[in-house]
Design a protein around this nucleic acid. Structure first.
Lengths: 236, 236
DNA sequence: TAAATGAGAACGAACGTTCGCTCTTTTTAT
DNA sequence: ATAAAAAGAGCGAACGTTCGTTCTCATTTA
């Protein structure tokens, strides 16, 4: 009885011949159809990212994205309901990838080293975890675009606020832990310290120094000096 | 004879009755007509700035700007040949206003104080010279928009490069002078130090902390710590 | 009188999106 | 197992709208 309530397309099954699962809901997630859908979505997002980097969110048209993806508009709109939804998806994964770089901070026992690593990894354009979302060379180019879009697009602003809030929390917890342990003596209010560090770091990331021939190694002492100046580690 | 070569509109004259100048070329700059032209241009730029802050360079339409300026498209296009030209004019004055804040650096004998002043004045949203272009509260909102546009608009990129080059030169001359005098011992290559300081400062300005309730005074120690950390003034 | 100014309709192009259709794959019924 | 039916996937023309810009014509100013 209840089976008739379920939409038909959710009852499809993969090529593996497991009849007892053919009406299972989650089976859809591993079906051939579903797999193809994910591949196509990734193809679209990849093409859209290239177009957005090249021309901006508003400057790139859906036709551009279709051409880049080798797909007709009719086909593309089966996977994303609107241009807006593509933008939101890309922005979310962009900020997510940025936020995930902070996850590796715990690998360092020294907070200064951890902070320098965060900055360096951001300009180095390498993802923190191998199996996560990618933080490639286009991310830096997309940074100013995302920030500009967030100023007037509520959904994009919400995505930014979500992940940036996570980043601030993570930074704050690390910094306040270090302060509690007496390792550092920051210059001011902890929340402001964290926000300023993030803002200054973002400023450097946006400039995209590596693309201008400045090696990451040259930036490292700057990040270290900045971290030391603001966190003020106590002498031992 | 030669008068007929000159376009007619350049021969108009002001209300002051100086007949002997009525065919003078430069007289146009002070004529009533020309005055009105400047007023109208300013009106358009003012309206366009509001629209661009609200919706971005691409998001704001010419109709929006016309409405905001209380002007018809036909009238507006007598003063600016294209939307592009309006954008370029606004970007140029935006970057010019930003660059002019550096002019006051010479008022300080201490380079650290001078640098802190530059940062504070940028977030404070006050123009350096009273009679210059204005650096008002909309400038911070326009910052990310300008940077995003510069990534794909060659003319805008050129304007940015021009004024940012001036800023780097000014900063570089001040910093290298201080180093020559033995006042500071910067962490790395001087050009890179200057570029990093500018990038970090811009990051803070873009965040628009005052709009989020963070007072400028709270930011000042941060700027000072940053300047001290990177320039490393020598003890006396 | 002639030039400058302005209003507003109108232009062609491009936009994001939808539609109708064909072809293929999957499900259902026999 | 096979035919019929349904659903999915893809294409490309076409939709209605909005874009930046231009044109025409009236009004004001010199």
């Amino acid at each position: 009885m209840a089976d008739h309530i379920l939409p038909k397309q959710l009852t499809g099954m993969a090529d593996e011949k497991s009849d007892h699962e053919s009406h299972c809901f989650v089976a859809k997630l591993f079906g051939k159809r579903a797999q193809n859908r994910e591949v196509q979505e990734a193809r679209i997002l990849e093409a859209a990212t290239n177009c957005f980097v090249r021309a901006g969110f508003r400057g790139a048209s859906m036709n551009d994205i279709c051409s880049e993806a080798g797909m007709s508009p009719g086909a593309l709109y089966r996977y994303f309901p609107s241009k807006e939804s593509i933008i939101e998806t890309i922005v979310a994964s962009h900020r997510k990838a940025s936020a995930e770089i902070l996850n590796r901070m715990d690998e360092y026992d020294n907070i200064i080293d951890a902070l320098v690593m965060v900055g360096v990894d951001h300009v180095r354009k390498k993802s923190a975890d191998a199996a996560g979302t990618s933080w490639d060379e286009r991310s830096a180019l997309l940074f100013s675009e995302v920030r500009a879009e967030a100023m007037r697009n509520e959904a994009v602003a919400a995505q930014c606020e979500l992940y940036e809030g996570q980043m601030r929390e993570k930074l704050l917890s690390v910094v306040s832990a270090a302060k509690t342990k007496g390792e550092i003596n920051p210059v001011g209010d902890l929340e402001l310290v964290v926000a300023t560090l993030a803002a200054m770091g973002e400023g450097v990331v946006m400039r995209n120094f590596p693309a201008q021939g400045v090696p990451v190694e040259a930036l490292e002492p700057m990040f270290r000096a900045l971290a030391v100046a603001i966190l003020r580690p106590v002498q031992k």
